[in-house]
């Protein structure tokens, strides 16, 4: 099976992770200022989700964790070794898993959809797929490349 070139995957991961940093930073900054992110088309879903009890873990806004996660993914995209591939995969896996849980919470518990959270969930899903492809396609090739 052929995989996209690792450089292409790294560039795509870097681009999407940078977008993710922007989205998560916006949510975190708005929350720190006591506001909720502004939903498009006048929807109040963002305010409802931002003020729900699910928006914080151990007193910290989950967007802050998101910022750290996206930054870690961005950093991992700049290195072509197994540590970066596996680290990127684990971070993206964690982010993707938590996004699944948060989407469930939005739909079935809070009963409101925050467009910024959906944007982050979509980014994290794509990042998970890209990092999984990178790990499966190029994991364990460090020594092989050195030998060549």
């Amino acid at each position: 099976m052929s995989y996209p070139a690792e450089g292409t995957l790294q560039r795509a991961i870097a681009f999407l992770a940078a977008l993710g940093v922007g989205v998560a930073t916006y949510i975190a900054v708005e929350a720190a200022g006591g506001d909720a992110p502004t939903c498009l088309a006048g929807s109040s879903g963002c305010a409802t989700v931002a003020k729900s009890s699910y928006s914080h873990v151990a007193g910290v806004n989950i967007a802050v964790f998101g910022v750290f996660g996206y930054v870690a993914l961005l950093v991992s995209a700049f290195f072509a070794n197994d540590l970066a591939r596996f680290g990127g995969f684990v971070v993206a896996l964690g982010g993707f898993g938590y996004s699944v849980f948060l989407t469930y919470v939005e739909i079935f518990k809070i009963e409101a959809i925050c467009q910024w959270c959906v944007a982050s969930a979509v980014l994290m899903t794509i990042l998970f797929l890209l990092n999984a492809t990178r790990l499966i396609g190029y994991g364990g090739t460090d020594q092989l490349q050195e030998a060549r």
Partner: peptide
């Protein structure tokens, strides 16, 4: 030997993943 090491390393990575 490198190819063998890489194969083993890859297997370990996949198991961890």
């Amino acid at each position: 030997e490198s190819a063998t090491d890489a194969g083993e390393r890859r297997t370990r990575l996949m198991q961890l993943a």
